[in-house]
């Protein structure tokens, strides 16, 4: 899977080619996904560095979620390369991406409603004993509960009863559980796909506070969001997708909401991406 390509990470095609090699957590080059004749993602060059929070914006169908699905190996890319943590990677599936340190809070949360908090946090990577029993190995509930409490504490999330099923929780609590995975498993990169899209004002504030906690801890984040205020408040950089391609890569201090909307709608395109779009 992995081949050491540290020297290639400063490749000229990346938007931020000046980044120090050690700082780059994730880099994609020419990432492309076609569904038959539909070109959902085309030639995406992207990178994110340690401690950086990068927003991905774009209209519906612009390719934002498709981009995330290729990085996290929920789908297999048509072509392109991904480097993560200093190595070129070709994850076989989402579990391998998670094991490597990429935690994703998907748009639809990816939670099993009928399971409780520890069961959801450890879904697919349970702590077990008697491993010789294969699929019938025994769950170590005590260890999973303890790790869950530690993860929730780290993100300052307090859930009254972690033993209750997720379906009995509010939208905000559910989102916090999904985000708490990142703290529990000490991820190297967190990706959130519209984490507050379905939440109320109070719950959104709660999730945003957790994102600030990640920033304080120096954990890199890719945030997909339609919320301009949130993006300008929480992120360092904004990457805009349009029709499956990246059309702008903007530092927060050099842009504003109106400017970003112009890129999203196609009224503007950065010169370096003009050919691509």
């Amino acid at each position: 899977m992995a081949s050491d390509l540290q020297t290639n990470i400063s490749g000229a095609s990346a938007p931020h080619s000046g980044a120090r090699i050690g700082d780059v957590v994730l880099r994609t080059e020419g990432l492309t996904k076609h569904y038959g004749g539909v070109h959902a993602l085309e030639g995406a060059n992207f990178e994110i560095r340690k401690g950086e929070h990068v927003a991905i914006m774009g209209d519906n169908g612009a390719g934002k979620s498709t981009f995330v699905r290729q990085i996290t190996a929920v789908e297999q890319r048509t072509r392109g390369k991904i480097w993560f943590d200093g190595r070129e990677v070709q994850f076989e599936g989402p579990l391998e991406a998670r094991h490597a340190g990429i935690e994703t809070v998907f748009q639809n949360l990816a939670l099993a409603d009928d399971l409780n908090v520890p069961d959801n946090l450890f879904l697919g990577r349970e702590k077990t004993f008697w491993n010789f029993l294969g699929p019938f190995r025994v769950l170590d509930y005590k260890a999973m509960r303890a790790a869950t409490m530690a993860g929730l504490e780290k993100t300052a999330v307090k859930i009254p009863n972690v033993g209750q099923a997720i379906r009995n929780m509010s939208g905000g609590q559910r989102q916090c559980v999904a985000i708490a995975r990142t703290a529990t498993f000490h991820s190297k990169l967190t990706i959130m796909d519209e984490p507050t899209a379905a939440l109320g004002v109070q719950e959104t504030a709660q999730v945003e506070n957790i994102i600030r906690t990640l920033k304080e801890d120096g954990e890199p984040l890719i945030l997909i969001s339609h919320n301009m205020r949130q993006v300008m408040d929480l992120c360092d950089r904004i990457v805009v997708f349009r029709r499956g391609r990246i059309c702008a890569n903007l530092r927060k201090e050099e842009t504003d909401g109106q400017d970003i909307v112009a890129y999203i709608t196609g009224a503007k395109t950065q010169p370096e991406y003009a050919d691509a779009t």
Partner: peptide, 27 residues
Amino acid sequence: LVLRYTVYGKHTYAIGSNEDAARMSGI
């Protein structure tokens, strides 16, 4: 015991509860 205390049981519940979530979790 199998459904309550083993990985098999937990994955069975997870798939029935949200198959997409189970798949995205690597099951």
